[in-house]
Design a protein around this nucleic acid. Structure first.
Lengths: 334, 334
DNA sequence: CTGAAAGCGCTTACAG
DNA sequence: CTGAAAGCGCTTACAG
């Protein structure tokens, strides 16, 4: 039997009951007779009936769908977030609409409009910045929203973020303990909250370990790989080049690794590279790459939990998850 | 203004026209007066009206949504596919519902049911195997479906796959030319079409390059990392261990790399590892890892193109994209 | 416990 | 060119 095309009306007719009764047994309403339940249930299987979610949504003004707007699922961090969010949504019987903004404000705006028109029950969003008004429109529409990974100033929206400070602190502590005093930094865009926070954490950590901040050791990228390549090239070309480089996300770290190798330098012996995000691949480099880890899966799960609580009318507190430094350096520990 | 909650009825009232007229100007119907267009357009912006996609879908029995069911977006191959598919869908004004089956037939079935109830216009699916009837139900429902990456026997469904033979052939040619005669293989599950095809291609290629098939050099995994670790351990523990290992997907290759390092062996000098899928990270290993590459982005884009043509009532041919061997070995080429 | 009816927000023949 | 009306497939008070 078709499945599509068969409506609850067909089920009712087949079962010899009214439309309302069919609907009630389908929704598990208590006021149904055993007889009605049996006949409707049988009709459903015989006809291969599948309720039309669109019709139900229209009636209930509840779609049981969430929008998930990330930068780019090809970034392993967001892939983890997306996977966890999708699984959490599935567990709560929600479907997930996926949008990639590609670090691009126009695409972000486009998806916000789309999610609004789709009447999703809420959206989990890694904001690209303010956008051109769509973000405001989203908030003003009273659509439940949770920010993930990043926040945007001026928006009173619950968020799930990560506190980069402990991880960066530990990383600097570890590097200085190992004798590094010239530590290069590839910062993220300062228009993005994580870019700013990590930069600040880096700047703050240095003096605490007896290192003066040297502006020539700080470069700025855009969280994309190519900018990591360029930034690392610049750092490595300096006469007094750093002995360690810390990159503010995994893509720029990847770029830095490429630039390092391209220059004929070897990790571990010639230079140390510390990446952001515990991407599995980094653990299997030879030698393995130390990282500042955040639990991307927890971030995604938590964002959906928060979102669903907002959907239920609650006003959850924002969540800040920790970061930790995972030292994989092969140098003998002091 | 709210945006949600304002209906076309409000717009019509605000513009002083009938509901039908408002709808016509919104849909760009030619039979509208300039006056009506102006007033409705203004009402729309003044009220912040956004059409309700659910209501429109119900009316049009067309949702402008596609379902995308992959194994796991955390697998870089599927992340690429998902990103490309989503962008292609967006370009055609479709939204993408994301499902991760996690190489798990029950979750696949669950999502198939969900997509059916959501009345998506079509689904792009990397099948996990036959499933417990849901796949049949999907096809029988006459829902447009396109398989990606894998196919399932007995289903006459257009697909976008990759031909592993040329890539594997080139890899074996390259390895044998470099003097390797003991080449280990970590095969994928033989219940999955790609697992079978790659296995066959490997078996067929060896004799062509003067190598006898040695069953002790062939191990089977499940396309997941852990199975790659185990398989590689087994291969490497043999008294007469292989000098090169080829893994049938990127996750098992990752596992093999881990096992190799764990055993204290070094890529390039002690052993050669060839991975499937041109994961960016592999290019930045030191030394870089040779791969059999498939264009995952093209796979995703193409799948959506095919799907939309099916939605339009066409009967497109399946597409087979090529694979190529990317030799990154540091040995001096002969 | 059950049926008839209203209504969720749209689109589109049908008259005029 | 425009309005009134039917209907997409459901759910849920409202009577009975």
């Amino acid at each position: 039997m078709a499945g599509r095309g068969v409506t609850i009306r067909d089920v009712a007719a087949h079962a010899g009951v009214s439309l309302g009764t069919a609907s009630r047994v389908l929704s598990g309403h208590p006021a149904t007779s055993a007889d009605a339940r049996a006949r409707v249930t049988q009709a459903v299987t015989e006809l291969g009936y599948r309720p039309n979610a669109q019709a139900r949504s229209l009636r209930l003004t509840r779609t049981h769908a969430i929008g998930l707007l990330v930068s780019d699922v090809r970034n392993p961090f967001f892939a983890d977030v997306a996977h966890a969010a999708e699984q959490a949504a599935l567990g709560a019987d929600y479907v997930t609409l996926l949008g990639n903004a590609n670090e691009n404000v126009e695409q972000q705006d486009r998806y916000i409009e789309t999610f609004l028109m789709q009447r999703v029950d809420g959206v989990v969003l890694a904001p690209q910045g303010r956008g051109s008004g769509s973000l405001e429109a989203l908030i003003e529409s009273r659509m439940p929203v949770v920010f993930v990974d990043r926040t945007v100033e001026g928006f009173d929206v619950p968020s799930v973020t990560t506190d980069s400070r402990p991880g960066i602190e530990e990383a600097i502590a570890s590097l200085t303990a190992a004798g590094h005093s010239r530590i290069g930094y590839i910062a993220g865009p300062q228009a993005i909250s994580t870019g700013r926070q990590r930069y600040d954490a880096f700047i703050d950590a240095l003096p605490r370990h007896g290192i003066d901040v040297d502006p020539s050791l700080i470069t700025f990228g855009d969280f994309q790989e190519q900018s990591g390549v360029r930034a690392a090239q610049q750092l490595l070309a300096a006469p007094d080049r750093p002995t360690a480089i810390l990159a503010a996300d995994n893509l720029m770290a990847l770029g830095a690794l490429a630039a390092t190798r391209q220059r004929g330098l070897h990790i571990g012996s010639d230079i140390e590279v510390v990446a952001f995000d515990d991407i599995e691949w980094l653990a299997h480099f030879d030698p393995p790459i130390s990282v500042i880890a955040q639990d991307a899966g927890a971030v995604g799960r938590c964002a959906v939990e928060l979102l669903l609580s907002v959907v239920e009318g609650e006003e959850p507190e924002s969540v800040v998850l920790p970061t930790t430094f995972i030292d994989r350096s092969t140098r003998t520990k002091s």
